[in-house]
Design a protein around this nucleic acid. Structure first.
Length: 417
RNA sequence: GUGGAUGUAGUUCAAUGGUAGAGCACUGGAUUGUGGUUCCAGCCGUUGCGGGUUCGAGUCCCGUCAUCCACCCCA
């Protein structure tokens, strides 16, 4: 019986783990500068949180959630996204009573029961940010610029920023009806998926990739024409800020977000170097969600980054160098081994990565291991050296070798570092 | 949930229906206590699993499981 990780669940380890850690470190750094505080919410929440937050009609809720009944008979769900739990926390802890805005970031696992493919997993990691309490487009701009800065700091380039406004509770229904009126006439000619979308979410038809559907929807109503004055003003305000700071973006009137809670500003960052799942980050406003959870009317906006997708891009563009120890101490004989352990521990105490031989095998095999793990120096202590109070140092890359008194070993390596 | 492709050694891959192999990796050796390059040797398999056809199946057929890619949808 051979065990394997569950479908769609991946182990993350060296050498990739270095990329993960680097991205996470960059994120913490950038978020801190923008005044975003880390928030850690549970992975498991009451199922209602997600039904209410994401929407009963969505695929996520209808077929992708890891939901089960706990021993107390409650229906609980492994979080499929991060926003709903953060909003739950915001409302539960009455965070609206703290100085506005409240800005949070999180990083962690999400779970969706889907068929895995390139860039899609059942357990995946997101880095997300959420800002509560500001209606002004300056907040939209800040979030977008922070995201752009983070992606750039992580080492990504050539990404495509797409931007749209899908309107508010006032103007979106009007637009939706206009779309239904437009599609309704030739509905039979659209693909089966689109006919289904017509009922579920007509905005999705704008996203269909079937050539015939793309043809048919030529001249369909465009969102910008249906935005109410407030939404229009807000969106124009955002674009003005982005333009004045020369933040690159492309307007995409067909950009639709899948989750029900989005309002007004929506955005998506894509790469052409991924597979079909090419979105590396996405987000938008969700001004109704806090109230939906029983809190006061609170403006909010956020985004989430797909870690695996970013790491995939970084693996293609940059070579990861394996971390290697500075010193490998090879010893011969039990007395020398004790001396070796002492030196290794002293080096470590000084912050130097040092490896030991773990019992004396042949010098040949010890040096072979030193070479294989990429140690920069080998320090050889045999019985002869011990008697003379010395050690042999060897630079593994240059092949140079020399003697150093045992009492000066620490000083020798401090100078080399 | 739907469709397609692929499953052979740790890994990358071979093997007109006729004895399962190679490179890399790993372990050891090439005279005393010196890695990499080289040379030699060794180790490694119920050919994913279960049936069927056949004198004979890694190879053909059916089923099943797994992985990958795509659809749906999404980060």
């Amino acid at each position: 019986m051979k065990y394997a990780a569950l479908k769609g669940m991946e182990d993350i380890l060296s050498p990739d783990i270095a990329i993960w850690q680097a991205v996470e470190a960059k994120a913490r750094d950038i978020f801190a500068r923008y005044g975003f505080q880390e928030i850690r919410v549970p992975v498991l929440e009451s199922t209602d949180i997600f039904i209410r937050g994401i929407g009963q009609e969505t695929d996520i809720v209808e077929k992708e959630m890891y939901t089960f009944t706990d021993k107390g008979g409650r229906s609980v769900t492994m979080r499929p996204e991060g926003t709903a739990p953060v909003v739950r926390c915001f409302v539960e802890k009455n965070l609206h009573t703290l100085p506005s805005p409240q800005k949070f970031y999180y990083m962690g696992q999400m779970y969706r029961y889907e068929r895995p493919q390139k860039g899609r997993f059942r357990q995946f990691y997101q880095i997300g940010a959420e800002a509560f309490g500001v209606a002004a487009p300056a907040m939209d701009a800040e979030i977008i610029m922070m995201l752009a800065n983070l992606l750039e700091a992580a080492g990504l380039s050539g990404l495509n920023f797409e931007l749209n406004s899908i309107g508010c509770a006032e103007c979106r229904p009007v637009y939706r009806q206009a779309l239904r009126d437009f599609f309704g006439g030739k509905l039979q000619e659209y693909c089966p998926d689109c006919q289904r979308r017509y009922e579920a979410n007509p905005l999705r038809i704008l996203d269909c990739k079937v050539p015939r559907c793309i043809e048919l929807r030529q001249g369909s109503p465009s969102v910008p024409d249906y935005l109410c004055d407030a939404c229009r003003t807000h969106f124009d305000g955002l674009l003005a800020i982005l333009d004045s700071f020369e933040v690159p973006y492309t307007l995409n009137p067909n950009l639709v977000r899948g989750l029900d809670y989005y309002t007004m500003t929506t955005f998506e960052v894509t790469s052409e170097h991924l597979g079909a799942q090419k979105a590396v980050a996405a987000g938008g406003r969700y001004d109704r969600l806090v109230a939906e959870f029983g809190g006061p009317d609170t403006h909010a906006i956020g985004f989430a980054i797909g870690m695996e997708r970013i790491v995939t891009l970084l693996k293609e563009s940059s070579q990861t160098e394996l971390r290697a120890p500075k010193v490998f101490v090879a010893t011969l004989g039990s007395e020398a081994e004790m001396e070796g352990i002492k030196i290794v521990e002293m080096l470590r105490a000084k912050g130097v990565w040092a490896e030991q031989s773990y019992g004396s095998t042949s010098l040949k095999s010890q040096l072979r291991r030193a070479d294989r793990i990429g140690a920069e120096f080998a320090l050889i202590i045999g019985e002869n050296e011990l008697k003379a109070g010395k050690a042999q140092w060897k630079n593994m890359k240059k092949g140079e070798q020399g003697e150093v008194p045992l009492s000066e070993v620490m000083q020798f390596f401090m100078e080399e570092c």
